[in-house]
């Protein structure tokens, strides 16, 4: 019994210790950011690996999500003779929730895991220690560009995801189901507010991007430098990143749209 209690206490303390480590780690990265801004080539290279290489999966997923949303919206709305409102449902769902959330999940799986694996391997092959030996701060040279690139890439990816989703919904609604083209766009314009819907979605995506990259980089930096530890760290990135996205999404939705 006492052993059990001790174990629980240890676990809880370990969780808080990790959280503290992660926060200190983030603080160290943020401190190096001003110096990083003088070297944009590092950021561009990371934007390529986090942003450009995630673009394809975002495009494909966005198109299919938009098409499915339009089909399901039609299935329900046609009973009420309100099938013209498909666009409102597709656009609002994508902007407020699915756009940032699915982009976040895909981003955690595609870019987040790659970041963890890359940094974890750097650690296990002692590249990070090597840099310190050469008086290069790995925080500034390795971590900070990745965090900043993820932070910049997520809103762009989300915008692409939503836009492609809206076009996918358009394809189904106009060419599949037979809604008039003008009705599709004008009803969306009537209901969708630039600030409440689009901008709040973008704010969500920025928050998600920041949290995912933070988790990914920290897990890589903190990984046990063995092949097994690296695998565990990558798994943890995807699991924790996805859970963080979903949990934060509820929190942000409650703050942004809770009073409607």
């Amino acid at each position: 019994m006492l052993d059990y209690l001790q174990l629980t206490g240890q676990r809880v303390l370990a969780v808080f210790a990790r959280l503290g480590q992660a926060t200190l780690f983030l603080y160290q990265i943020l401190l190096t950011l001003p110096g990083l801004l003088m070297r944009p080539s590092l950021i561009i290279k990371q934007l390529y690996s986090t942003g450009v290489q995630t673009l394809l999966i975002i495009l494909v997923a966005g198109c299919f999500v938009g098409m499915v949303l339009a089909l399901q919206a039609y299935y329900v709305l046609v009973d009420f003779g309100a099938e013209d409102s498909i666009s409102q449902m597709v656009v609002l769902t994508l902007m407020r929730e699915l756009g940032p959330v699915i982009t976040g999940l895909l981003f955690a799986g595609r870019a987040g895991s790659a970041l963890t694996a890359e940094i974890g391997l750097m650690k296990s092959t002692e590249q990070l220690s090597g840099m310190e030996m050469m008086a290069i701060d790995p925080m500034q040279r390795v971590m900070a560009p990745r965090v900043l690139a993820g932070f910049l890439a997520m809103p762009l990816l989300t915008a692409v995801f939503i836009a492609v989703g809206v076009l996918g919904g358009y394809l189904v609604a106009v060419h599949g189901v037979g809604i008039y083209e003008g009705v599709y766009w004008s009803l969306a314009q009537l209901k969708v507010d630039f600030y409440t819907d689009l901008m709040n979605g973008m704010i969500k995506s920025v928050v998600f991007g920041f949290v995912i990259v933070w988790i990914a980089v920290f897990e890589g930096y903190d990984s046990v430098p063995t092949s097994e530890g690296l695998g565990q760290a990558t798994t943890r990135t995807v699991v924790h990143g996805s859970l963080a996205v979903l949990g934060l999404d509820f929190l942000l939705t409650a703050i942004m749209f809770g009073d409607i």
Binding site: L156, V160, V192
Partner: peptide, 28 residues
């Protein structure tokens, strides 16, 4: 890499403007 990133950023911004102009009520 620079060209690819440039295209990516331009695509993201274009998507954002398309959403703002075509789908939301910013015009009104």
């Amino acid at each position: 890499i620079e060209i690819a990133v440039g295209v990516f950023v331009a695509l993201g911004l274009a998507a954002f403007f398309m959403l703002a102009m075509k789908v939301s009520n910013l015009i009104s």
